[in-house]
Amino acid sequence: MTISAADERGRGGAAARHPGAAIRLAGVTKDFGSVHAVRGIDLTIQPGEVVAFLGPNGAGKTTTIDMMLGLSRPTSGEVSVLGLEPREAIARGLVSAVMQTGGLLKDITVRETVAYTASLFADTRGVDEVLADAGIAGIADRKVAKCSGGEQQRLRFAMALLSDPALLLLDEPTTGMDVEGRRTFWSAIRADAARGRTVLFATHYLEEADQYADRIVLVSQGRIVADGTGAEIKALASGRTVRATLPGADADALSRIPGVDAVELRGDAVIVHTKDSDGLARHLLTSTSARDLEITAKGIEEAFLSLTSNETSNEGARA
């Protein structure tokens, strides 16, 4: 999983300089009353990229995707999709999205669902062709209510691919799929991307983002806190946690020690995230009165949590 065009990726203010982008967000914010769901996102995604939108629940992923789909308007900032207003891009069949659950009528057949959806677009692929491609031609005359979860998910994809979209947005696409289902799903998505389709998927599984995306955009509390390849994101997450009992610890002094990402004081306990746990332990045991020292490896999931869970640790992620 490598990406050669790393330097062309829009980051931050560079977003505005990419007119041919598949997605371009510039200074996008979204408030719901007093809640700031998205607090300023700049993002440019190039055609053919497979990008994971990674973050915990409530990070603003879904709100941002809704704005890309024109389902809601940003409070401030601009969203364009393939150089068009999102609703215009959808009207031309250039953007599709697959929902996590629901989105299907139960009282019509699989074929009727695809025919209904196809009838709404100016140009679509043939209904039978799409049914065959999705592997659901055999159940075309079955009521949607009688289809299994996996069959319904295939149907959702058939519907999404009807208009041959240039951009596919997936919100937690593999929720509820088994391991084999995930693998098949992602190999199909990667094959499409290789032919030029841009794919953005939201997920809260770091594992999935790392395995299947060219690029991971890490969001937390409505902001992008990191943007890079899986390897880059994992490097940010490397390091260990050192915990010790040290009454009256000097957090500032500790944070100046080389390798230290974050320092947290909890009563008499001090918890330090660092890339150099040996150096820190040596310092604590030789230069301070620290006792009960514990060193734990920061698992990737834990690292992800530390990157996305609070504002102070975001500093480390931008490094």
Binding site: R92, L94, F121
Partner: peptide, 24 residues
């Protein structure tokens, strides 16, 4: 689908209203 020409794509007439949908 190697390249998708954005300008070649059209929006449907009548806001998408059509008889297939009505029949279903």
């Amino acid at each position: 689908m190697s390249t998708i020409d954005v300008n070649a794509r059209r929006a449907p007439a009548l806001g998408g209203f059509n008889l297939t949908m009505l029949a279903i």
